[in-house]
Design a protein around this nucleic acid. Structure first.
Length: 608
RNA sequence: GGGGGUGUAGCUCAGUGGUUAGAGCGCCGGCCUGUCACGCCGGAGGUCGCGGGUUCAAGUCCCGUCAUCCUCGCCA
C-alpha cells in the first residue's frame, strides 16, 4: 500500500509557507469537532500543526490515528492565531486525506501532559510505544542520543577506538549477582552477561590498543532503585601509558565539552560547567561526611571533639574517651523547628546508625524563652543539650561551626563511619528543607585517593574498594601488609550533585604487586589460577601501565533532563524486580527448550 | 531479606461498617461553522488487586497474599 508522503514536517510551517500545497504525515494529537468544521492538531516528532477539514466533511478520526493530509497552507485570521504553538500563525486547509491506521481507545491520555505526569508507571511502560509519542519523551531520547553522539565525536577526535566486547562471556567474581545464560552443548555450564567490560578493556590494553572506549551495556542482577536498572549503560574507557592526571584531564574536558554542547543544543535551563572541583576521599569524608557530596551547596560538617572532650555532657565525653567522634552540622534557621521536626531529623540520624541527635538552638538574646539561658558572653542558647554545656563550650562551638542567632546545631557522637553517614544524610535533608540546591547547577567533582581496601566486618577480611586490579599508591605500598586500611589507591570517582557518576582507577601492571594484593584480599594461588588465570597470563606478556574510568550514561542524561527516575531516560525500561510488562519478560519457555539446555526448573522452595 | 506508601470505571481520584459505589477526564449517541482544555444534551462502563475471617451487614474492620512505587540492606 502506498501513501502520500510528507512534503514538510508538522513543526515547520510558518507564514512564509502560506499558499503552498503541502502534505504532512503524523498522528491526530487533539480532535476538535465543531459540527460543520473539524480541527485536528496533527503531531509528528517535530511539533504540532492545526489542520482544518472542508466544511461538512465526512470524517471519523479518533485520537492518535495515523494520518496523511494534503492541502494548502493558509494564514490564520489575526484573532484566530495561537501564540502557544510555534505553527500557530498558520493552518493547513485539508483538501485530501488518508487514514493510514486508526487508533484504538488509548490506555492513557497521551496528549495531556498534566494527566500523564500522574499516570501509573507500569501502564506507561507496558504501552511504551504510545508513551514515547509524547514530545517530552521524544526530547529525552533526543538528549540522550545527542550526548552519546558528542561523546563519540570527542573521543574519536582523540584517537580512541570504539570496540565492542562480548555480551555472552564468563562469570567472574565481581560484586553483583550475574545474569546467566545456559550453554546448550555442555549442561551445567553457563555464560554470564558482563557486569561491565572491565577485564576486556584491560585485555585490550595488553593488546596494544592504547585508547579504547565503548558505550557499553552492563548487567547486574541486584535489587532495583529509582536510579538503577538491571541493564544500564556506561561509557567504558581505558588508556595505556597514562597517569591518573591524564585520565582526569581527558574526562574533565570531555564532560564539560559534551554537557555544555547539549545544554546549548536543547536550550536547557542549566548553567554551563566551567570547572570540575577536586577533593580527596579523606577531605570529602571530613567536610561532607560522604564520598559523593552534593556541592550545589556549601554547608560543611564540623568536628567538636577537641571542644567537648571534657564536657559535662557524658555522651560527648565518653564518646571521645572511647576514641570516637563528636561531629555536627548547623541547620540554618533551625531554631524555629518544632520538637516534632527535630524528632524527624533524629529519626534520619538513627536510620543511619546514630544513637541519637544531640542539639541546641541559638535564639535572640532578648527572647527569654522557656528552656533557654543567656551565657556570660551574651549568647542565648535553647533546648536540647544546652544545659549540659558550659558557657565556654558554647562560645567555642559557635566559633567552630559559624552558627548564629536562629540556627540549630546538630551533633552525632559515634564512630567515624556512623558520624559520616548520619551527618551526610542530615546535610542532604537540610539542603532539601532549606531549599539550598540551585536547580540550574551541575556541580561536578572528582573525589580522589580512595582507600585501596575496606574491612568487611561480616566476612572478617579486606575487600577491594574498587576492584582487585586497582593500583595502590606507590608511596603507600610499604603499609600493604602492616596497615592495609591506610593504603590509598590510584582510584577516583566523578560525582555530580551528590550522585556517583563515574568510577575508575589506574590498574596494577606488575605481577608482584598483584600477587601481594591477592594475598591481602584472601585470594590464594589456586583461586588466582582458576578465577583470574586468563588475565594474569595476559599481564605476563608485557602489559603496559594503564587505567580508565566508566561514567554512567543513564545518570548523566538524568541530570540533563532533570529526572530522578532512571526509567524516564531509557526507551524500554524494566520495572519492579526486572519485569518488562510490555514484552512480558521474563517468560516461561517450552519444555523442549529447557530440556535441550539440560535444565530442570525447580519448584520454589519455601523459605526455612 | 526488612520498613513505609499505593491498589475502587479506560485514566486520575473521592467514598462515617448501612439505600442501587460516585466525580472529572476519556469513550459511545445527539446537537453545534473558528476551535485550540471547544461547548451543550444524553448514555454506557465496576471481580472495589486476590483469598480467607469478623459482622444482621465489609470498598470500609482483622489475617494472609500478590503487584507496584519509595527506601534500608545489597549493587567490587
Amino acid at each position: 500500500m502506498s501513501f502520500t508522503q510528507r512534503t514538510i514536517d508538522c513543526g515547520a510551517p510558518r507564514l512564509e509557507h502560506v499558499n503552498q500545497q503541502i502534505t504532512v504525515n503524523g498522528w491526530a494529537h487533539k480532535v476538535r469537532d465543531l459540527g460543520g468544521v473539524i480541527f485536528i492538531d496533527v503531531r509528528d516528532r517535530t511539533g504540532l500543526l492545526q489542520v482544518v477539514f472542508p466544511e461538512n466533511a465526512d470524517v471519523e478520526i479518533k485520537s492518535e490515528t495515523c494520518l496523511s493530509l494534503t492541502g494548502t497552507l493558509r494564514a490564520r485570521d489575526e484573532k484566530n492565531r495561537n501564540p502557544n504553538m510555534s505553527t500557530g500563525d498558520v493552518e493547513l486547509a485539508v483538501e485530501s486525506w488518508e487514514i493510514l491506521n486508526p487508533a484504538s481507545v488509548l490506555p492513557f491520555p497521551v496528549s495531556d501532559e498534566n494527566e500523564m505526569a500522574k499516570v501509573n508507571e507500569e501502564l506507561r511502560v507496558k504501552h511504551r510505544y504510545v508513551d514515547l509519542r509524547r514530545p517530552k519523551m521524544y526530547r529525552k531520547l533526543a538528549i540522550r542520543a545527542a550526548l552519546t553522539s558528542k561523546i563519540r565525536a570527542y573521543l574519536d577526535a582523540r584517537d580512541f577506538l570504539e570496540i565492542e566486547t562480548p555480551i555472552i562471556t564468563r562469570s567472574t567474581p565481581e560484586g553483583a549477582r550475574d545474569y546467566l545464560v545456559p550453554y546448550r552443548l555442555s549442561p551445567g555450564k553457563f555464560y554470564a552477561l558482563p557486569q561491565s567490560p572491565q577485564q576486556y578493556k584491560q585485555l585490550l590494553m595488553v593488546a596494544g590498543i592504547e585508547r579504547y572506549y565503548q558505550i557499553a551495556k552492563c548487567f547486574r542482577d541486584e535489587a532495583q532503585r529509582s536510579d538503577r536498572q538491571p541493564e544500564f549503560t556506561q561509557l567504558d574507557l581505558e588508556m595505556s601509558f597514562v597517569t591518573q592526571e591524564d585520565i582526569l584531564e581527558l574526562i574533565s574536558g570531555m564532560t564539560m565539552s559534551v554537557v555544555n554542547d547539549v545544554i546549548d543544543q536543547f536550550s536547557l535551563d542549566k548553567e554551563k560547567v566551567t570547572s570540575i572541583a577536586r577533593l580527596t576521599y579523606d577531605e570529602s569524608m571530613r567536610i561532607y561526611g560522604s564520598d559523593k557530596p552534593d556541592l550545589r551547596f556549601d554547608r560543611q560538617l564540623f568536628d567538636a571533639g577537641e571542644i567537648v572532650k571534657d564536657s559535662e555532657f557524658g555522651v560527648f565525653k565518653n564518646t571521645i574517651a572511647a576514641g570516637n567522634f563528636v561531629r555536627g552540622i548547623v541547620y540554618p534557621g533551625g531554631a524555629e523547628l518544632t520538637r516534632k521536626q527535630i524528632t524527624e531529623l533524629e529519626d534520619i540520624a538513627k536510620e543511619y546508625g546514630a544513637k541519637g541527635l544531640a542539639n541546641f538552638a541559638i535564639i535572640d538574646p532578648s527572647d527569654e524563652a522557656e528552656g533557654s539561658r543567656l551565657t556570660s558572653s551574651g549568647v542565648r542558647v535553647k533546648g536540647g543539650i544546652q544545659k549540659f554545656l558550659s558557657d565556654e563550650e558554647v562560645d567555642q562551638l559557635l566559633a567552630l561551626s559559624g552558627a548564629g542567632v536562629g540556627d540549630l546545631l546538630l551533633f552525632v557522637a559515634d564512630t567515624w563511619t556512623v558520624s559520616c553517614e548520619a551527618l551526610s544524610r542530615l546535610r542532604n535533608e537540610i539542603g532539601t528543607r532549606c531549599g539550598l540546591r540551585d536547580k540550574s547547577k551541575l556541580a561536578f567533582a572528582f573525589v580522589l585517593d580512595f582507600p585501596l581496601v575496606d574491612w568487611n566486618e561480616e566476612e572478617q577480611r579486606w575487600d577491594p574498594t574498587h576492584h582487585p586490579f586497582t593500583s595502590p599508591k606507590v608511596e603507600d605500598l610499604e603499609f600493604l601488609e602492616s596497615d592495609p586500611g591506610r593504603v590509598r589507591a590510584d582510584c577516583y570517582d566523578m560525582v555530580c550533585n551528590g550522585v556517583e557518576m563515574a568510577s575508575g582507577s589506574i590498574r596494577i601492571h606488575q605481577a608482584d604487586v598483584q600477587s601481594r594484593i591477592f594475598s591481602l584480599i584472601g585470594v590464594d594461588e589456586e583461586q588466582q589460577k582458576t578465577r583470574f588465570g586468563h588475565i594474569l597470563e595476559a599481564f605476563s606478556y608485557g602489559a603496559p601501565p594503564h587505567g580508565g574510568i566508566a561514567p554512567g550514561i543513564d545518570r548523566m542524561v538524568m541530570f540533563l533532563t532533570d529526572d530522578e527516575n532512571i526509567r524516564e531516560v531509557i526507551a524500554f525500561p524494566k520495572i519492579g524486580n526486572g519485569y518488562d510488562p510490555m514484552m512480558d519478560a521474563p517468560a516461561e519457555v517450552d519444555e523442549a527448550q529447557w530440556k535441550d539446555m539440560g535444565l530442570q526448573p525447580m519448584p520454589k522452595q519455601p523459605q526455612a
